[in-house]
Design a protein around this nucleic acid. Structure first.
Lengths: 226, 226
DNA sequence: CGCCCCTATATTGTCTACAATTTACAAAAC
DNA sequence: GTTTTGTAAATTGTAGACAATATAGGGGCG
């Protein structure tokens, strides 16, 4: 379902597990945005030593989910309109390139699967289940990113900023009027990829993300004025 | 000079220093590409405990300079044609966006300074000192990136992939026939930024990096056939 | 002779204790 | 009453010891 992570070949080490748990708790808002993260507290809470907590927090910092200051400590990332805009500017840039490369590098079979995924999601949304949009949208973007076959790009998006994107979405309670609109945009992007039209695929993906940003941004602003 | 790092507010902690030293040694090739990095060895070599070596290596991993496998160890990143291409695709995407945002967000004073930097470099290169091209080019890109005023973008580029770019350059012994050509491209980019033409600034930056990639790529391929 | 398994060694992962720094609080000076 | 300064508590940074895992080598078995 919302299987976004694809974390590790084998999520073995304790630091790995703690990292994943912490990340989930942050994204879901269980650990509130901006909150101070005490190493000792987390150590007892997750039943591991401070060393592995520190290791996990290092990785979380690389994902922009926590901010650390030397000798002071770590805080959960804070959400803001400015931060959201900056994040989506990066997304627009990177995912635009991902779509371009996907049009170039995806196999015919992968493209066929992408089409299948799309129509499957469409069937579900037809019945008004807007929850699926969230997972479906992420799935779609996820596949295009992997389709780029560019490891750096994949790392930066999947392990880097995508969990922060999820954090914004979850904590804003997404699922909105953009459901059907977004589906049309997805469809056009896939068409461009199917036609191996790199230029168009990039342009459509960039616009899609730009629209998405404006949508969330409006929601966030209206929430602030409550 | 080649002051690329802008490391920390105050580079205080031992892990910070070790991280910076290790990074320099990797970029300069003092620690060879692909080489195994033993925590114990590095610990004695740099005169710190294994804990700080591990902390430093975690950060190096985030910068794509070392690769770690659980229970196996860390290696210095390996250089390859494919890796270079992927890296420059990411650069093209992110720095293109940076140029766009710089055209939007740089102050008039910052743009004036950028112009000054450019003519200063031009004077030096006129006298055939090609070394300055390396530092000058990085300086130029550095300023545009900062001019974007997008913290995520800045982090990903400056702390993220830029040291890997330097590693490729240093170990390929850059400084080539592209010196004057690149200067023209820089000039045009600055002109677009001065005119606040976001669209053109992005396009020119992307082409500039694309050309640069082709240049280095050719060099790398000709080296392989030796 | 080649393959597999088992053991010894080395390396990484984790834990606990100690050192250094920051933060909070209170007392003293203005 | 406000500000400054010194001391105590709490938190992070660092070090070293122990546990778990992977690697290499040798011996046994087919």
């Amino acid at each position: 379902m919302g299987k976004i992570t694809l974390p590790f070949e084998q999520p073995v080490t304790a630091a790995d597990k703690t990292f994943i748990k912490l990340r989930a708790d942050i994204v879901e808002g269980d650990l509130a945005a901006g909150q101070k993260l005490s190493e000792a507290e987390l150590s007892t809470k997750y039943g591991v030593s401070r060393a592995v907590v520190r290791e996990a927090m290092n990785r979380l910092e690389s994902s922009f989910l926590v901010e650390r200051k030397a000798n002071v400590g770590a805080r959960v990332a804070t959400l803001s309109v400015e931060g959201l805009i900056e994040l989506y500017q990066v997304r627009e840039s990177l995912e635009g390139m991902a779509a371009r490369l996907a049009a170039k590098n995806m196999t015919d079979k992968e493209i066929a699967d992408l089409n299948k995924l799309l129509s499957k999601h469409f069937d579900k949304v037809k019945d008004g289940e807007s929850y699926y949009q969230e997972a479906g949208d992420l799935d779609f973007h996820y596949r295009v990113i992997l389709g780029s076959k560019n490891q750096h790009l994949i790392d930066m998006l999947i392990n880097g900023i995508y969990h922060l994107v999820r954090m914004y979405r979850v904590q804003l309670g997404m699922a909105g009027p953009r459901v059907t609109t977004a589906f049309d945009e997805h469809k056009h992007i896939v068409q461009a990829i199917s036609n191996r039209d790199e230029e168009l695929a990039e342009m459509l993906m960039r616009r899609h993300i730009l629209y998405s940003k404006n949508n969330i941004e409006n929601k966030l602003i209206s929430m602030q004025s409550n």
